[in-house]
Design a protein around this nucleic acid. Structure first.
Length: 626
RNA sequence: GGCUCCGUAGCUUAAUGGAUAGAGCAUCUGACUACGGAUCAGAAGGUUAGAGGUUCGAGUCCUCUCGGAGUCACCA
């Protein structure tokens, strides 16, 4: 537990901003020039050089008329004389390396080592919303959803840690032709079967009927191609187009205009829209199966939502806004009655927002949903976690919101992420290469269980607790493997690598934490850590840990600003790596004297807290043993 | 074709415009009488797709070329 009384106000003593401020003053005093704060670059010193922080002096050559080395020496003198924490300096070319005194680091460590919330910023008093997962209700979740969910969840955690009040939402696509296909297939072919009677997880059960519909439809389409279809091909194909190519392109038209199954599915959608009782009942039944299945998957991933929006309730929203926008001239009407917006001066195209028959499109609904969310929660910041295939859609949406003058328009952000490929190539549902979320989770747990049984580290632990630990390890492996990659990058997901437990992995980081827990358990009978205050000679490995711990709040800030959890992932890995090296090279409980032992215990505890907090931001739990 | 994004070691990847491009996997070689070896140390592996440009300084910014992906629906 943290005791707030002995905490220093970490944010107000940020050393690099103190240095920055003093450099600005120094440049003014020494060279009589004002420099903007962003021209003063403070970085942490690279490993091969002596020092903790480095000031780049190249930018001051013009205002001073001096060589970078000279400037470095003059600034160094100034800083050592004026800033209490700066103990010494050295200059290498245009780089001024500053050494921060041990006293500063000891105070810092003293202030944070018991604070389990170190790194978390003060509340900003602002609300943000993160939309993620957002599945369709006709199929179970797959690997792509997992990337989405992990990004959404960690973005929520990171924004929360940076001071926002965050509302987690998903928009559930529970209506439309797709769910009608599943419903129809169930009605025709299931013979009254239920997930219970079939012994199948309920969302997979519904998915099976969606696939079955597609199969039956394909059979019907094939048969048609051999009969009436031939004449249609003869009259409608373009020059140079062969039959296979023609029928591939013609599939949608066939579904809409020729198919008996298509006709039935569309009739069902009409009955749904008309509010037909039996249809609605079937629809509710199918969807409730799917939700039960999704909830199981969300639970095993450890995620939850504050609010669900259903398209069945939002798909008519936005039409009023279009009417108002027509009057104010944001939109215009074409002769056929459809309503458009012209975004060509913003480098985009013209875009339809209302069909000629007056019905809404996807865009209309998204306009209305954003407004609804603002009314519901007053959020000025909305983050949409959606794959990059929808980049254009969100560019258009945000531009429209801006032109409508919505007060939160500047706070809309599309967290766009790349698709997940397999080593064998793209995931394709038609070819059965989609990696199912539940299968994948089960597989990584199986691998972790196998691996764990080969070690005897959990010998004395009760079976139920063992299982819990194994799940933590497995999920850490899977989650870290996905979240460490920059969101924007299209990623190749190798299932073999995702269950790795060594190297740059979640379990590697967990292991650093577990080692610390083990040492602390052994040290608990040793009493207080008061002697640490006498420790004067920090080792390089210790210094490295301290500077990394010191950077934690900045890492959270950067990850929040850039909507990029992978920063936190790299940070955790680097911290764990430094700790493993420190642990290997220096004895903690067997240190030369009491001061060194207490200091190292303190350092270890601080590291374990930051590792746990950092991994928590990624949605990864830490076990106490493994 | 227009627009957008991506291209870093065999593979997976990192790097607010700053120093000798940093890791992991795989390969090879070492380290347990040890606070947990899911660890550590070392070797080898790079013309950052290519060519120009801006800059004191470019993987990063600009232009062009090549390669890959996405999108350009009165679908969602």
């Amino acid at each position: 537990m943290s005791t707030s009384s002995n905490l220093l106000p970490i944010s107000s003593m940020n050393i690099s901003s103190i240095i920055q401020q003093n450099v600005i003053e120094a440049v003014q005093e020494l060279y009589g020039a004002m420099v903007a704060s962003d021209t003063v670059q403070i970085t942490s010193t690279r490993k091969d050089f002596v020092g903790d922080y480095t000031v780049v002096t190249f930018p001051f050559t013009k205002v001073s008329g001096k060589k970078p080395e000279e400037i470095g020496a003059e600034l160094g003198e100034y800083l050592v004389a004026r800033v209490p924490h700066v103990a010494s300096y050295n200059v290498v070319k245009g780089f001024l390396n500053l050494v921060i005194g041990d006293g500063f680091w000891l105070d810092f460590l003293q202030a944070i080592y018991e604070n389990e919330d170190y790194g978390v910023a003060e509340p900003k008093g602002e609300k943000a919303m993160v939309e993620f997962s957002s599945p369709n209700t006709n199929k179970p979740l797959h690997l792509g959803h997992i990337r989405n969910i992990l990004l959404g969840w960690s973005t929520y955690k990171i924004l929360e840690a940076s001071g926002y009040e965050v509302i987690r939402v998903q928009i559930v696509n529970d209506r439309g032709i797709a769910i009608c296909k599943s419903m129809l297939a169930w009605q025709k072919y299931a013979g009254g079967a239920t997930p219970e009677s079939a012994g199948v997880k309920s969302d997979h059960f519904v998915g099976k009927f969606y696939v079955l519909f597609e199969q039956k439809f394909q059979e019907e389409y094939k048969a048609w191609q051999l009969s009436e279809g031939a004449a249609v091909y003869a009259s409608k194909h373009k020059a140079g187009q062969d039959e296979a190519g023609f029928f591939k392109d013609f599939k949608n038209t066939y579904f809409n205009e020729y198919s008996a199954l298509g006709k039935e599915a569309k009739a069902m959608l009409l009955r749904w829209e008309a509010g037909d009782g039996a249809t609605l009942e079937l629809w509710r039944q199918m969807n409730s199966w799917v939700y039960a299945g999704f909830n199981d998957t969300y639970n095993s991933l450890g995620v939850a939502f504050d609010k669900l929006y259903f398209e069945s309730e939002t798909y008519l929203l936005g039409k009023d806004t279009v009417d108002q926008g027509l009057e104010s001239g944001v939109f215009f009407r074409k002769p056929d009655g459809s309503v458009w917006i012209d975004l060509e001066d913003a480098g985009l195209d013209q875009k339809v927002v209302l069909r000629s028959d007056g019905t809404a499109v996807y865009m209309t609904q998204d306009i209305g949903t954003a407004q609804l969310r603002y009314r519901d929660f007053g959020v000025k910041r909305m983050i949409y976690v959606v794959a990059d295939e929808q980049n254009y859609h969100f560019q258009v949406l945000f531009e429209i919101m801006k032109r409508l003058g919505e007060p939160y328009a500047a706070g809309l952000h599309h967290l766009s992420y790349g698709m997940v490929d397999l080593p064998s190539g793209k995931m394709k549902s038609r070819e059965g290469t989609v990696v199912d979320a539940d299968d994948l989770i089960e597989e990584v747990i199986g691998e972790a269980r196998k691996d764990s049984s080969e070690r005897d580290t959990l010998a004395g632990v009760p079976a139920a607790e063992q299982e819990e630990i194994i799940q933590k390890i497995a999920l850490a492996a899977l989650k870290f493997h996905i979240i460490k990659v920059h969101p924007k990058k299209r990623m190749t997901f190798d299932p073999k690598e995702s269950v790795d437990l060594q190297g740059q992995t979640g379990p590697y980081i967990q292991n650093a934490y577990v080692r610390i827990r083990s040492v602390v358990r052994k040290a608990e009978q040793l009493g207080s850590l008061a002697a640490a205050a006498d420790y004067a000679q920090t080792e390089p490995a210790e210094k490295e840990l301290l500077t990394q711990l010191y950077a934690f709040p900045d890492v959270i800030e950067t990850a929040a600003r850039e909507y990029d959890p992978s920063h936190v992932a790299s940070f955790c890995y680097n911290l764990a790596k430094s700790y493993h090296r420190f642990y290997h090279d220096h004895s903690i409980l067997g240190a030369a004297d009491e001061a060194a032992r207490d200091f190292r215990l303190m350092l270890s505890i601080a590291t374990s807290n930051v590792l746990r907090k950092g991994m928590d931001l990624l949605g990864i739990d830490m076990p106490d043993r493994m």
